[in-house]
Structure formats: C-alpha cells, structure tokens
Design a protein around this nucleic acid. Structure first.
Lengths: 111, 111
DNA sequence: CAGAATCCTGGCCGATACTG
DNA sequence: CAGTATCGGCCAGGATTCTG
C-alpha cells in the first residue's frame, strides 16, 4: 500500500482523530464542549485536528453570528461512514484492555 | 474516555500499527518480508512496533534456530479479533480517498 | 537474517499571549 | 467564545554502525 490512500490512512491513525470523531458521534458539538470531552487535547491540537477533518470533508463547521460567536462542529455524511469504524476500534480497546494488560504482565514476567 | 483503555487506543492509533497488522492478515511473515511490505518503515520502527504488539499480546514471535536465524511473526487469537477492524479502516481509506481529495480541492478553492 | 546500540536532528506539540 | 500567532523544549524516529 502506498500513494494518496496511504497518506489518508496515516491521517486516520492520528492520535486525536479517533477521539474527535467519537466525540461527535452523538450529534453537533460546540468547540468548548469538544475541548472538554476529548480528554487531554490542547487547544492547538483540537483546532488543528478539526481543521484537517473539515478540509478532508469528514467534519462540518457552522458559525452562528452572535456575541460571543458560536461554532458547531458536526460529522458530514462522509464522516458518518467512517464513524462506525472509529467507534469499533475504540470499543475494542475498552473490551480487550484486560487481556492486553494480562499479556503485558506475562511478557514482562518472562524477562 | 480516559485510563488504561485510552492508552491502548492511543497505541492502536500509532502510524505503523495498522499497516503492520494488515501485513500479517494473510498469515505468518518473516521480519524482512514485513520490512518490504510495510512501505516506508525503518528497521527501528518496525522492530519497535513488533515488540510492542508482541508485548500487548497481539502478535507472536517465533524463532527458528538456524544459520542464519529465522523469525516469523504472526497474529495471536487476540490479534485476529482486532485485524478486521484495522482492515476496515484501511479499506475505508482506499474506497473514499477520491471523495476526500475532492473535499480538499473544494476547501482550498474556497480560500 | 534479524536485530541492538548509538548519535543526532526536524518538527511536533504544549505553553503563553493576544484578538474579533 | 473560539480561535490565531509565536516561541521553545523535547523526543520520535531516521541514519549509521555493529553483532550473534
């Protein structure tokens, strides 16, 4: 595998992409809400991740003129086709973390 | 989401994990074969990725005494439960790269 | 063949300050 | 509120060399 789709896979493997997409699974979220629900993300990385996802057509950005301004992010139809896969990976991690930790313990004990 | 399963998700989001797991989808592979089929990976990163996957119980490492030595990597039963998800993500990238590139062109044109 | 060990650097990313 | 801009440290990871 190489070429453009390989670069896209690299992007999907970014640390914050899965978390951001999953945070949008329940519908539109405001910027500050995302910052809170994506644990550990810095302002810079959240903005950078959202910009990239927007440019790639996975996320939409809607600005509501007001004081202060309001910005809502949402998954696009294309983004929705990816979300189940991201969710499945996240779920896999939660379901199998116990087995992984057991494997680590066994591996470390064998040193 | 936070805690141990979050760390595991971070590891699954590593750049080389998806590619390495997918390279093992068709059965056991030798180290050098993996180095060739995982395009762009350095020896250091391949070894590091394989070690981590082995420690996490996703990949097995079998050494055959010979001159020169032979090492085969394979998915464990646990690794096999994750593989379909990694494959689906890789497939998604290949199927939707066109739409993503179109979205990028549209985004850039709107500047 | 399958790594281990070392050195070194680009760029990722957090922290901080500022703004419409 | 939702960002942008800038600076600097730190380390991921490439290149190289060496070995069982």
């Amino acid at each position: 595998m190489s070429g453009p789709s390989r670069q896209l896979l690299d992007r999907l493997s970014d640390k914050w992409v899965n978390l951001t997409l999953n945070a949008l699974a329940d519908g539109p979220r405001r910027y500050t809400d995302l910052a809170k629900s994506v644990t550990g993300v810095s302002q810079k990385m959240l903005t950078q991740t959202l910009r990239t996802l927007e440019r790639d057509g996975l996320v939409s950005r809607r600005v509501t003129a007001a004081v202060p301004v309001r910005v809502d992010y949402d998954l696009t139809p294309l983004g929705w086709t990816l979300m189940p896969l991201m969710y499945a990976v996240k779920e896999w991690a939660e379901v199998h973390i116990g087995e992984v930790e057991a494997a680590r313990a066994a591996y470390d004990a064998a040193l």
